[in-house]
Design a protein around this nucleic acid. Sequence first.
DNA 1: AAAAAAATTTAGATTAACCTAAAAATATAT
DNA 2: ATATATTTTTAGGTTAATCTAAATTTTTTT
Lengths: 220, 220
Amino acid sequence: MQNSFTEENYLKIIHALSGREGHEVSTNALAESTSTRAASVTDMLRKLAEKGLIHYKKYQGVRLTESGEKVAINVIRKHRLWEVFLVEKLGFGWDEVHDIAEELEHIPSDHLVERLDAFLGHPRFDPHGDPIPDAKGNLTEPDYFILTEVQIGEKVRMMGVLDHAPSFLQHLDRAGITLGCLIEIKEINEYDKSASVQINENHTLFISLEVSKNLLVQRR
Amino acid sequence: MQNSFTEENYLKIIHALSGREGHEVSTNALAESTSTRAASVTDMLRKLAEKGLIHYKKYQGVRLTESGEKVAINVIRKHRLWEVFLVEKLGFGWDEVHDIAEELEHIPSDHLVERLDAFLGHPRFDPHGDPIPDAKGNLTEPDYFILTEVQIGEKVRMMGVLDHAPSFLQHLDRAGITLGCLIEIKEINEYDKSASVQINENHTLFISLEVSKNLLVQRR
DNA sequence: AAAAAAATTTAGATTAACCTAAAAATATAT
DNA sequence: ATATATTTTTAGGTTAATCTAAATTTTTTT
Ligand SMILES: [Mn+2]
Ligand SMILES: [Mn+2]
Ligand SMILES: [Mn+2]
Ligand SMILES: [Mn+2]
């Protein structure tokens, strides 16, 4: 039997919330993320456990089984490939694609995903810098730093975002901070930890701590 | 409020069954097409009427309202555009795309459809020769002939199919009958109405009445 | 180690989309 | 014009995914 739209969303969210160590996810955390009530989550957890997609013991939180992990990663693969399509082929902005990809990720055809992947040239990262799992389900999170960890004088490359909200992405657009751009920390204000940064050895601007906290970068 | 996947399918099917004159569609015909029971159809008709998408009087069949027609045509537009995408960009065969397009047609984003349309170069016809409604909802069915109406000696162009079943399309592939190809009727067997036809002034072959009945062609 | 607080589950409803069986309306045949 | 057959609707259920309110379990605080 097939997994429903709703089931796939639960698995994807459990995957996201359980982190790289795959620790237990609580009922309340899921209620928050799915915008439902805890009681509804409990019902769904019983069903997912029944189908062998999660490990679930009452009151103890949940983890994905191997089979659940496989489903979750496939949904993530589809989400990110569709986002690449929307940005690279249809010309959407990176701030516009998430909601559409939330729908497209549930279209059920392996054949479609593999052809889409090939059409896009087997991209490794989505428009937000998130890694795309391969067809076998291997997903390797590159280990980037958060910009707040970078020292004055260091030059780093912008590789991703932690916040995917359109308003944050639009803010980056206005600041000229795009995926792959060079960032040099010129100065950090002691008072509010805001920073003066130079983008692409070019223009200089101030960014708040809030922004720094959500930028993933790579040392070179 | 938005229309559900199921509601959209009903509207699309009512559109298809009511023909170009937009005549009444019966409950049983809808039950047949939706693979549900008549009682379920009645339930849905009450709901669609409630929403102002159909004209419905008990026992009298249904017709689309203007608003229902608009929704139906938009779904058809999306279906056909996605089919073009799947064939032209992803390299699927025309026999493989219908079921995937059945899912994609319900992705709800006007922005997406318009960008997809532009990306595909505003195609006028889908891979089966069916016309694609424009962004304003204008859908003009070209008036083609059925191959059975064509006389011996006539040369016509293949413009579409009435049967969209994968098995029929694959049969045409094997016979080398593709959209746009030239067909000349060489001979018609009185006994079973099978025909000997020449494709692209090239190879000759026999086709059954069953095949002729499902080929749409244009006189030149 | 109680008591209090927080998290989670259970109980009992609701809504959309389906179902079967029975009743009612319409169409067809004698 | 009746009787018969067909079509359609109504009545009463089911399942998935949600809800609120109440009960239970776990965690935290005193
Ligand atoms: Mn996304
Ligand atoms: Mn993304
Ligand atoms: Mn189709
Ligand atoms: Mn088609």
